[in-house]
Design a binder for these strands. Structure first.
Lengths: 335, 335
DNA sequence: TTGTATGCGTTATCAA
DNA sequence: TTGATAACGCATACAA
């Protein structure tokens, strides 16, 4: 079924049918009624591809997230969805976790093979797990504006909404120091990720400044997406020859895995080990004891990114922006 | 930039350019090289709308989930993504939570207003929160196959992959009974959802059979998506005039909210109150104490749905199927 | 208020 | 191995 057939059935031209759909106020009431009836009867709906071939607007935005298991990313999506919906856009989430390790494949896919995505704009979250240059490659491929949400301003020439990762880590380290901790263990995510290296670097830097010790053997690597990995990897710290008094987890998921191991094995938190999380997820606050966390303003991050993207869509020539949102420390019970 | 311009620059016809992209083996090596070079230089990529206007294939599948905060739905997505990716499809997630209460609006949106989605197929998860008839309406609107993933086989004429909700609830109730509980409280989600009513009905039915008491005042309603609601709503049960010995939460999120309230207020689990969750999420297993849960095979649900959808895409005339996957009880420490 | 004609960017058919 | 041309289904400028 297409417009031509509807037109024929209604005894009008395609133009009139088109108008009935897009500018019904310009169509005679009776004609309109007839056309609508026929469309209903034949369950007709506009072919979006044909329409978009002309007006080049999909009203779709896609958000690429590195890992759907992490509720943080979904909060970001929630924030973005709110402003996008208000502007008549639909937000759709694409989880690239599986593709991170075969990301050239993804690029290849998007580039040449079958097709591209259908969107007016892209929000790229947490590219800290992506290879250097990936953002730019993506930017070249996608013909639409891209806004990245990241721990820090990443590649040049890309619009970014970011939190000051460094400030967040400082918040955590100062707090630990204030609480009297002078040695810490680190439960990190994938060692190869840029993000991991960057957090690590900052923590080490501040630890020197604050006189907090980090034994190399107390730095362990799990996976950001895996509770199980936080659980099993934290053992090494707990049973290390020089156990620290506090453990810093690199995200909320790793923190919960760590907590579980501690509690299951009758360690008291925070008495035996304090735990702090770089990155907050809702579950952190509902654990018991609640997990003290550095919080990036997920919802606002999403909102700002969406707003920026919308601006870019309206005016692609707009100069690149890097919007900074400050992190905060949510003190709960684990330190 | 479009194909015509590339063709002109390369001194060939559009047909040859098209072939260079889709059937390069049919193009002279030297010509191919030249065309590719020019495409690269001008950063050209095929316009997916034009392409799809002809071949009607997007290689996109979208999964609509009622609530992205619930990790269960994301596990389902993970399962689906795996089989879809293997078949060369991209899976994208659309969170309809915000739209559930204005779902006619969503339908309207998809139907006439701006556009439809761009997909070859749709997986609809957890329509238990949707209004009666919604699935069918959606089915009429979308011109693509739809597969629903649900607690039970829902509307006729729709392909479904489902778990036997009834069996799952029986599993839970029997277990509680075995553990010696003779009175329970219920932490449910939104009262108005079909899903809620249906779980409630089953629980009541089995409670009679097993001689388990449920005081009306011990049935409370929160929100499936909100940890906070589980937390605050469970109070009423705990401080009720006839407190039960066990609490059944209607999903993992509500269970965790409940746990937090109990532990924070120094109730012991399971000694003072046992807690069981209808629906398992990864966090349930990493809480302490671990939350005993009825588990639907999320990943498999996603896989089966994807497989079925793929079949339907290949052959739309295929007869409707309703595939049943059994639930299981994951015993942990909360009972 | 309605209709005609043209074009959006691509692929398929057929011929060369 | 290549090319001319006709679709695909719709929206818009312009005319009536």
């Amino acid at each position: 079924m297409n417009m031509r057939k509807i037109a024929k059935l209604a005894g009008v031209s395609v133009t009139t049918v088109s108008r009935a759909i897009n500018k019904p106020e310009l169509v005679n009431e009776e004609t309109l009624r007839r056309i609508r009836q026929i469309m209903d009867k034949h369950n007709y709906h506009v072919n979006p591809f044909a329409r978009n071939l002309i007006n080049k607007k999909t009203k779709n935005i896609v958000m690429m997230i590195p890992n759907a298991s992490n509720p943080f990313h979904l909060q970001v999506a929630e924030g973005a969805e709110e402003v996008l919906a208000a502007a008549g856009y639909i937000l759709t989430i694409y989880n690239i976790r599986k593709n991170i390790d075969r990301q050239s494949t993804l690029l290849e896919y998007v580039r040449t093979k079958k097709n591209s995505f259908f969107m007016d704009g892209l929000i790229l979250v947490g590219s800290g797990s992506l290879q250097e240059g990936y953002q730019k490659a993506l930017k070249n491929i996608m013909q639409t504006p891209i806004v990245a949400i990241d721990p820090g301003p990443v590649e040049k020439g890309i619009d970014t909404v970011y939190t000051d990762e460094e400030a967040g880590i400082l918040l955590a380290m100062k707090y630990l120091s204030k609480k009297g901790h002078s040695s810490i263990g680190l439960v990190a995510g994938e060692q190869k990720y840029k993000l991991t290296q960057s957090i690590l670097k900052e923590i080490k830097r501040f630890s020197k400044l604050l006189n907090i010790k980090i034994e190399e053997e107390n730095i362990v690597y799990g996976s950001y997406a895996s509770l199980e990995s936080g659980y099993s990897v934290s053992k090494k710290i707990i049973y290390s020859s020089k156990p620290p008094s506090a453990i810093v987890a690199f995200n909320g998921i790793l923190a919960i895995g760590t907590m579980r191991y501690l509690l299951e094995n009758k360690y008291r938190v925070p008495e035996d080990f304090a735990v702090i999380s770089c990155g907050d997820i809702p579950f952190n606050g509902f654990y018991y004891p609640g997990i003290t966390s550095v919080q990036s303003p997920a919802i606002d991050l999403g909102k700002k990114a969406a707003e920026l993207l919308l601006k870019k869509i309206k005016n692609p020539e707009l100069q690149n922006q890097n919007i900074l949102l400050p992190p905060s420390l949510v003190v709960r019970e684990s330190c």
